[in-house]
Structures are given as C-alpha cells and as structure tokens.
Design a protein around this nucleic acid. Structure first.
Lengths: 331, 331
DNA sequence: TTGAAAGCGCTAACAT
DNA sequence: ATGTTAGCGCTTTCAA
C-alpha cells in the first residue's frame, strides 16, 4: 500500500494541507515544518498520486503522443525526443500507434484526450475538420503538419527539396522522378510542391509516379514505375521507400548510382547502412519531438489563444550526400 | 468543458449511480433506463474520467511499458505489439525510454507505477533486488528476462543459438566468435551460455570478444577484435551490432561471407536490407509485446500470487538464412 | 503560517 | 432496479 498525503501529514505532525503546500508551494510554509515534511516524505517514499491531483487541478502532468507507425524509425526518433524532453519536466507520455489508420487515430485521440493535458499529433492523417474538433477538446501540437490556429513544428520541405534537386542537377540529371507518400500526408504534399518548383526552376523535368505506402514495401512497389519513366534520378517520400526501391533495383540488376541516382528524406540510421549508402535530406527528428513538447508546455502554461497561433516552429533539413548519388554521371 | 456523469444523469433523469451502473454493469439496470442513459451519453459525447474512476476502483485502465531504447527497432516492434493488444482491451499505454540507463529506469518506473495497473519491463537492466522491489509495488511483466516469481515472456535463446551454430558448423566453420551485449542484459547471458553449449557440442571453438553496446556503433567497435580472433564466423548479440560489424568489415575490405560469416539475432527489418543481407535468428517481436499484455491483463484479473509464478511464456526464434553466411566455405 | 472543510468525478456500499 | 451516502487522494478556499 503506497503512502498517502495523510500518512505523511501524520508522521510530520502537520495537516495534509500543509504537506500539500510544502510540496507545491514551499515558499508558503515555515522552513522548519518544511524540513519535517521533507523527512517524512523521504522516510515513507511518498509520491503524490497524480490522478488525484489532476482531478482537482485539472492538470494530469501527462501528455499524449500519437504516431502512425512506431516501427518507422522516423517516428521512433521523434518519440525519443518527446520522451527526453518530457522527462525533464517530469511529464509522463502516453504513446499511441495508429497503424496508419485515420479512423483508429480518431478513436485513440478521443480516448487519450481525457487523461492528458495535451496531445502531440505526429504526421496526423486526420482531416482538417477532425483536427480542429480535437483542438477544441484539448491542447494540440502538430508535428509534420501545419494547420491554422494550431501550434506545431514542421520541416521546411521546400528547402530540403531544393537542396536535393540542386545536387542532382549539378550531377547532370535532367529528368527527376518523384515517389510520393500517403495522400493524406501534409509532408507529401509540401515535398511534392517544393520539388516541382525546384525542378522547374532548374529547367529540368519532373516525373511523378504517384502515391505509395511510406514503407520498404512501398519502395519495392514503386521501383519499376520509376524505371519506366526513364528518369536518371529519383527522390522518394522518405528513406524507407528509398531503401525498398534500392532493393528492387538491385534485384533487377540496375546499378545505383550508375544507371539511377536515388535520394531519400529523413536520414534514418538505416540510410547510412544501406548499400550503396543513401543520399538523403537529414531531418532533425528528436529535435522535432523536443520542440513539440516545449511548445505544448508553453501553451499549457499560458493558454492564451493568441500564442497558439504564433507557436509554429520550422526546422530545416540538410542534404547528406552518400554513394547512392554520383559521382558517376547519369547515362 | 467535458460532460460529467452528473450531466448525463440529469439529462437521462436518473441518478449518477444509475448511469455508472448502466455503463459498467448493464445487466443490473432496466433496459428502458439503459436506453435513456445511452442516449444521454451519446448526445453529450460523455466519456468517463478514468482518473476519477481509478481513484476509487484502484484500477486506472492504463499500463506502462519501459524500454531501453525506442530507436532500436526491436523495442519499437515490441512496443507496437503491446499497443495493438492493449488497444483491444481499451487500455492506454505509457511508454518510457530509459536510454539504456539503469538509474533512469528506476526513476521512471517509480513515477509510472502510481498511474498504471501494471508495468511491462522490456529488457530491464535493473538489478534483481530493484526488480523485486518494483514487483512489490505494482504488477510487473518482464520481457526478455526471467525472474523467479515475476511473470514474463522470454525467448528460447539456447535454441536460437543452437540453430545458428548448427548452420555455421554445417558450412564448415570450426571457430565461431561471439560479440556480447550489455552485461546487465539477461539475454546476453543466456545467449552466451547457449552458444557455448552448442559450440562445444559440435566440437568447435568459441572466441568471445566481450561486451559491446547493443547498437550499430557497438558492432563497428567490435569488428576489429572479431577479425583478430581468427574466427571464420561470428554471432552477435543482435542485428544492430551485426550490421555495424558488417559496415566496418566492408570498410576494411574484408569480404562477407567470403572471409567471415556473420549471424545476428532479432531479424529487424534492416537485416533484410543490409548488403549482404544478414542471416539472423528471427524473434517474434510483436508477439512478445502482445503476450506480455495478455499476461499482465490475466494477472490483473486474478491477482492470486500462484498465477504470477506460472505465468511465464517462452517464445521460439527461427533461423533466417541470408547472404551473410555461406554458401562460400570459410578459408 | 497553519488547519478545517469542501469538493474534483466517479463508484461501492447501503438503503429502499 | 434505483437513489442516497460516503469517500478514493489530493488541493484549495476560508478561517484562525
């Protein structure tokens, strides 16, 4: 049986309210009593029951993190960043994996919303309407998606795509293929847009091969269509897709980068380990998680609606050049 | 402002206790009132406050999952399995990442213990003493570790090692190196033991090169020592280590499997994607997570101490042969 | 500076 | 079958 505040109070010879104050507002209690309370707390190994506290303060000290797929290293990294930052403020984190299912996401969000002070929605596949409904119910921070009036952190996808295109064009590529991710993904739309702009700015050609699952399998599936476009270079929605694509190209005996250059996005650990090692746009993943928590805590501390709107962070990706592109020029 | 049980009661024209009963023990309430309550619940979008319920029932409907490193795909998969199974029973999951730090683990566990019905400790690095202390405070299910009197799920490491060794010996290897994982890891001890038995049973030689971090970097660090042993084959603590080792061997121009055969453990997605593709012992990861939840829910349902002791599941690994071993015989 | 009392949202006796 | 009462562990008025 864990000790309650009354046990502590009894042992310290004070009232429960004094114990409560000694813990949450130490300045309002006599230093002598404060010491006695501290001793009792120590001796009993007392830890306040957060649920009980939350019931009255309306604050649970918990936050929720919702991701499409924990097995995707990108999300695992974001989750790690969230964890790390949350722990610093003694905040516990509920994690929910939606399995890339928008319907499941809605359910999980509703279930979590009641037990947390706020929610971090990572790469949410929810519709705009659903999203604002959620934002009404609890504090929300978005990762990888920008929505008016909701706080969040996004990557500058346009800049990432510009870097990738500049690199490929410098290598002599004139036709670049693009393998898109989930249609509901904000990132895929913005990467596609940025890519289109960058390619045309360089007077090159863009060959879009459509939407694929953001997974290794998605990349395998996309490979043949990419080859069919006749492009000499391809940029994929993310690294997982690029690595799947690499595998299929290898199976078909198509040499990378000899016949086709490949660029991914994310720089997951796997990218470096791929053969050939994958050129990619490195996104600061843990940082996104940390900032998301930061934002959420800020919003919670000062819930003025004005702040929510401004609280949008933009992170920048960085092109990491590896063997999967050049120096061999395309055919 | 979310609706409370009193709002529902008022709208349905009944008392709060009736609403409570209609929701938790529907059979004890008149079907007519049950319908009225259901309607009110629906109309108000009422969702019981779990914290409040937990305060009185002593059950929160939450569980905690503690892992050493979410960025390790093995743990990400286990987490996914846990999530999936927990969701089926409408249980929410706190996830804590200890960053491979035993001290952090202790703190996180204590913090979580109060807000959950039970804890799943995955590859816990805690000492036996700490572990039993935790098991005293809350219900615990261990993954990847076997402890007397604590429920859990482990892999049959011995069998996995036997399969790997039989494979290597059949290929003609006579000296097999072993790269161990964290010293505090139950798995590393049992893999090492099983390996030793299997190797000697085949009349072969075992060359142990010590403990390394269970990461890509650990594998890089181990590679040169492995080579120095003169072994023609190496088995590593896990796939991440094997892949790091592969990278370092590649950098040194040592051919795999031509000069050295490599076998990992886990079969993370990355293993298939490695070049050469990694031979490994496939562990059912999500299944471990699912079973852990199952066990925990069972223990919670019927907290007789007798069950806890028996509730230990053993899962079996399966050797997956890929390019990193044979058919080329060792030198 | 401290204590007593009330109550957060809910469920579990105890009545009826 | 339903309502009333009490109280889970905590914080927060309000008095002293």
């Amino acid at each position: 049986m864990p000790a309650t505040i009354r046990d502590v109070a009894r042992l310290a010879g004070v009232s429960p309210s004094t114990v409560s104050r000694a813990l949450s507002m130490p300045s309002m209690v006599n230093s002598a009593t404060r010491v006695r309370v501290a001793a009792a707390v120590e001796q009993l190994g007392y830890l306040p029951n957060r649920a009980a506290r939350g019931l009255i303060t309306g604050r649970t000290g918990n936050i929720g993190l919702v991701v499409p797929d924990l097995a995707n290293p990108f999300f695992a990294s974001v989750a790690k960043g969230v964890q790390a930052r949350a722990r610093r403020d003694d905040v516990a984190v509920f994690v929910a994996d939606t399995d890339e299912d928008a319907a499941a996401e809605a359910g999980l969000v509703r279930a979590l919303a009641k037990q947390v002070d706020g929610l971090i929605l990572c790469s949410s596949r929810a519709s705009d309407a659903e999203l604002s409904a959620i934002a009404q119910e609890t504090h929300v921070v978005l990762v990888n998606r920008r929505e008016e009036g909701v706080a969040g952190v996004v990557y500058d996808n346009e800049s990432g795509m510009r870097q990738a295109v500049a690199h490929l064009v410098a290598l002599g590529h004139r036709t670049i293929a693009w393998v898109g991710g989930p249609d509901m993904s904000w990132s895929t739309r913005h990467r596609s847009l940025g890519l289109s702009d960058a390619v045309h700015a360089h007077g090159a050609e863009l060959a879009e091969v459509g939407s694929f699952a953001p997974t290794y399998e998605g990349g395998m599936a996309a490979a043949d269509q990419v080859v069919a476009t006749g492009a000499t270079a391809v940029i994929t929605y993310n690294d997982l897709v690029a690595i799947g694509l690499l595998a299929r190209l290898h199976a078909r005996g198509i040499s990378v980068p000899g016949e086709l250059s490949v660029v991914g996005v994310d720089d997951i650990a796997m990218s470096r380990m791929a053969r050939p090692a994958l050129t990619t746009v490195r996104l600061p993943k843990q940082q996104a998680g940390r900032i998301a928590v930061e934002l959420l805590l800020t919003v919670l501390r000062d819930p003025e609606p004005d702040n929510a709107i401004r609280a949008f962070a933009t992170l920048h990706g960085e092109l990491i050049v590896r063997e999967s592109t050049g120096p061999a020029p395309p055919p």
